[in-house]
């Protein structure tokens, strides 16, 4: 009797296991299949296409080996593109982090209306880049735009900010920082809330002032957050596109064209899909390297 119950129980468990495995594969299918088709396959596709000359509309394809990569390295415009993207990165990453950190330090306190303030600082992140780019184009309007009016107060002559070679990129960087700092702030705030109060109390007992608390406790303890934001900021910078499209269309004279903008133009305006794919592969490698550093850092220094 007891044996019979036990074996029936075993049977029941085995049945449950089989059904669990069967359902597991069924239920991840609608997630894993699209990921394979719409994310993994296109990466392989980009690598393959980068060795061809390809016209998507007439579907003619010719294998040309690594010629697209050779073309990219000889091409002056590609060099300009890389330089622009790096300029954007060098401007955007430290600025968005500095402004976000400052905002987090300002808003890391329990005062009335704090969630309203955090919300207001964060709102630009959530809004459409195209819509806000249009608003900012108007703010940068040479004669009557707010930027010109404010800068006139401190004696700077108005100019056509978005169409001048020396001001177009800084203007785009400025708007990108405005659009992003709220996100950096929230991540810094989350980091700040993870620092135990007792650290500060101990330092204060030792007579540390505000500056010393920041310098010797807050900043070092936020290092992982800073590193994370640094890498994520670079990954985002390498892909800047929407803002450039709406504010400058890459101009004046390609001064603000970026990698993704060139991928778009070559693929959809010049019908150079193979060449565009080669640029996409270069971008992919750069992002993969950055992601690897990020992962390496976090899996070695922190247990998640």
């Amino acid at each position: 009797m007891a044996v019979g119950t036990a074996s029936r129980f075993q049977e029941f468990r085995a049945e449950l296991r089989r059904s669990e495995v069967k359902w597991a594969y069924t239920l991840i299918l609608p997630a894993v299949l699209p990921l394979l088709i719409f994310t993994v396959l296109p990466v392989l596709g980009a690598i393959g296409l980068s060795f061809t000359q390809f016209d998507a509309f007439s579907a003619t394809m010719r294998w040309i080996g690594p010629e697209n990569y050779g073309e990219a390295f000889r091409n002056d415009l590609f060099r300009t593109t890389i330089r622009n993207t790096l300029q954007f990165t060098v401007g955007f990453v430290p600025l968005s982090m500095a402004v976000g950190f400052t905002a987090a330090m300002l808003l890391n306190r329990r005062i009335r209306g704090i969630s309203f303030l955090r919300g207001a600082y964060y709102l630009p992140v959530l809004t459409s880049t195209i819509a806000m780019g249009i608003a900012w184009m108007w703010l940068f309007q040479p004669q009557v735009g707010l930027v010109s009016l404010v800068l006139k107060l401190i004696g700077v002559q108005p100019k056509d900010w978005l169409n001048s070679p020396f001001t177009a990129m800084p203007a785009v960087i400025g708007v990108a920082v405005w659009k992003a700092f709220g996100g950096t702030m929230l991540i810094y705030l989350a980091g700040l809330q993870g620092i135990p109060e007792t650290f500060y109390d101990a330092a204060k007992v030792d007579g540390a002032g505000r500056w010393q608390l920041l310098r010797f406790i807050t900043w070092p303890l936020l290092r992982p957050v800073t590193f994370y934001l640094f890498i994520i900021g670079m990954i985002d910078s390498l892909q800047v596109f929407d803002l450039v499209m709406i504010m400058t269309e890459g101009g004046p004279a390609f001064r603000t064209t970026t990698i993704v903008h060139q991928i778009y133009l070559n693929a959809f305006k010049f019908n150079q899909m193979g060449y565009a794919s080669a640029m996409a592969v270069v971008l992919f490698i750069a992002i993969a390297v950055l992601t690897f550093f990020n992962w390496k850092f976090f899996s070695s220094s922190l247990e998640y």
């Binding site: 894993v32 993994v40 990466v43 596709g45 998507a56 991928i263 971008l283 992002i287």
Partner: peptide
Amino acid sequence: RFPARDFLFGLVLATMMIPGSVTFLPLFIL
């Protein structure tokens, strides 16, 4: 629990690092 769970989940995590700006062109052709 099911066979190849960790492999498949690793695959999902790996796709997290592939951004749309790399895939939009081949995806368009697809």
